[in-house]
Amino acid sequence: MDLNSQVRHQATLAEEAALAISYNGISQAVMMVTPNDLEDFVLGFSLSNRLIARPEELYDIEFGGQGEARQAELTIANRAFAELKQQRRQLAGTSGCGVCGVAALEQALPAMPSLSPAPLPPARLFARLRQRLAEHQQLAQPSGALHAAAYLDNQGEILFCREDIGRHNALDKLIGALYHAAISPRDGVVVMTSRCSLELIQKAVSTGIGTLATLSAPTALTVQWARRHQLNLIHVPHHSEPRLYSPVPVRGSVSVGQTVE
């Protein structure tokens, strides 16, 4: 088969759209997203970025646009809106050479309260995890180009799976789905199919996730942040047992981690 024939018969491509998000009429961000589960996304985005403190502060959502250009108009509580405007004023003072300076560093590496330690899940919850996740990734099956965030209950059942071109977007969608369903993110395990980046740690801590498991190994910085904020952090390799990186393993090399007991 020649290249032209391969292109004509390629798999379905993942969708991508620009979503402009505004709060009480003020534009906040434009995110490139997979345009599904958008109501979950905007709630999770608002919570994980600390734009609202709890779901009740999001009063209304209106979606507009279509195709590659979408809009989400959010109405939030006055308290949350006042804090949002204050954050914008702090960033405006450092914008002469782009978003830089102390305020921007505080945005990238924010001070966050530590979590109350959650119980460690048993290793059996991760049995055949990759295969089970693949079965729940409905959008990724035809395209192969999407990250997934899933929620396992304390029996290891996958209750929710959300997908997106961006790993942070997938996590925001999952966070929104959990809060819409009135399920505490602390009670189960959140699993990411992607690399464990610092932003995932920050979103997990901000929204009260107790245990984060990823299919790719964490970096030293993400492990530091997970331990500092008492987030359980687990890596599920391809061909070996799950490895615990946070809290500090009781035995074995800290740099390597240990099997979850």
Rank of each mutant, 00 (worst) to 15 (best):
L13C: 05
A14G: 11
E15V: 08
E15N: 12
E15L: 13
E16S: 15
E16H: 06
A18W: 14
A18Y: 13
S22G: 10
Y23Q: 06
Y23N: 05
G25F: 06
G25I: 04
I26L: 14
Q28H: 13
Q28R: 10
A29G: 00
A29F: 08
M31Y: 12
M32N: 11
M32W: 04
V33D: 03
V33S: 00
T34H: 15
P35W: 10
P35R: 07
N36Y: 08
N36L: 09
F41L: 15
V42E: 09
V42Q: 06
L43V: 05
L43N: 10
L43Y: 11
G44Y: 07
F45E: 10
F45R: 03
F45A: 12
F45S: 03
S46V: 05
N49S: 12
N49M: 03
R50E: 09
L51H: 13
I52P: 12
A53E: 14
R54A: 15
R54K: 15
E56C: 00
E57K: 01
E57R: 08
L58Q: 11
Y59V: 02
D60F: 09
I61P: 07
I61G: 07
E62K: 13
E62M: 05
E62T: 13
G64Y: 04
G64N: 04
Q66N: 12
G67V: 03
R70A: 01
R70K: 15
A72Q: 02
